[in-house]
């Protein structure tokens, strides 16, 4: 059993205890369940959230049905052109005859303004929204298995390190600003943050 899994188990036990003091907190992980070192953990969280809220990541982690475009030559952040949406089936892969993968292939277009690419290009589920969310909101979401794809923080970390679509954020193709740091740095920041009790900012 990893540290992270133990931490989650502890959180569940705490939740079952239904301490009224923590009723308003993120439900899955209780900061106080193990030793929480906010001083150590919060700087790590800041590194993580700088990645998650970066347009390369947040533009496809939206609450509504529409991926966003932003960056040089795209004006202020705007809805992806061409009436692109999550898809009538809710899959995040687009609609009949106009799937994300009609244009977004397994690698980036080498052309400026060409479609970026990575395997299985699609929109994250709505409950994983980061776009225009506060650091505290993203933090609560990422720790909540109900809203993070049923992952432990350990699994979140390895997902960030190993998933090719996530990894695209650091190699986004010509003309696009990459997410800060690297996949590996972000993985390690998540580990350190978790080890510090995964503290969330007040807001």
């Amino acid at each position: 059993m990893t540290v992270l899994a133990r931490l989650l188990t502890a959180a569940v036990i705490t939740m079952l205890a239904a301490s009224p003091v923590h009723a308003q907190d993120a439900p899955a992980v209780d900061d106080d369940a193990i030793a929480v070192d906010r001083e150590k953990g919060l700087p790590e969280w800041d590194k993580i959230v700088a990645v998650l809220s970066h347009p390369r990541c947040a533009n496809c982690h939206v609450e509504d049905a529409y991926p966003r475009w932003s960056g040089a030559h795209y004006g202020t952040t705007r809805i992806h052109a061409f009436n692109i949406s999550r898809g009538e089936d809710g899959s995040g892969f687009g609609n009949a005859a106009l799937r994300c993968t009609s244009c977004h292939f397994s690698s980036n277009s080498s052309k400026l303004h060409g479609p970026p690419g990575a395997p299985l290009w699609h929109l994250a589920p709505a409950e994983m929204a980061w776009w225009q969310k506060s650091s505290a909101e993203i933090c609560a979401q990422i720790k909540d298995p109900e809203r993070n794809g049923g992952r432990t923080l350990d699994e979140v970390a390895t997902h960030v390190r190993d998933d090719p679509l996530v990894g695209w954020g650091w190699v986004p193709g010509p003309g696009r600003e990459p997410a800060p740091g690297s996949a590996d740095e972000t993985f390690r920041a998540i580990e350190r943050w978790a080890a510090a009790g995964a503290p969330c900012p007040a807001d």
């Binding site: 061409f82 009436n83 692109i84 009538e88 609609n95 009949a96 005859a97 106009l98 009609s102 244009c103």
Partner: peptide
């Protein structure tokens, strides 16, 4: 589009053809 949806609505057409 018609291979996937045999009787597409206006919305289906908008979703499929806007590209």
């Amino acid at each position: 589009l018609l291979e996937e949806i045999s009787d597409p609505s206006d919305d289906d057409i908008d979703n499929a053809m806007a590209g």
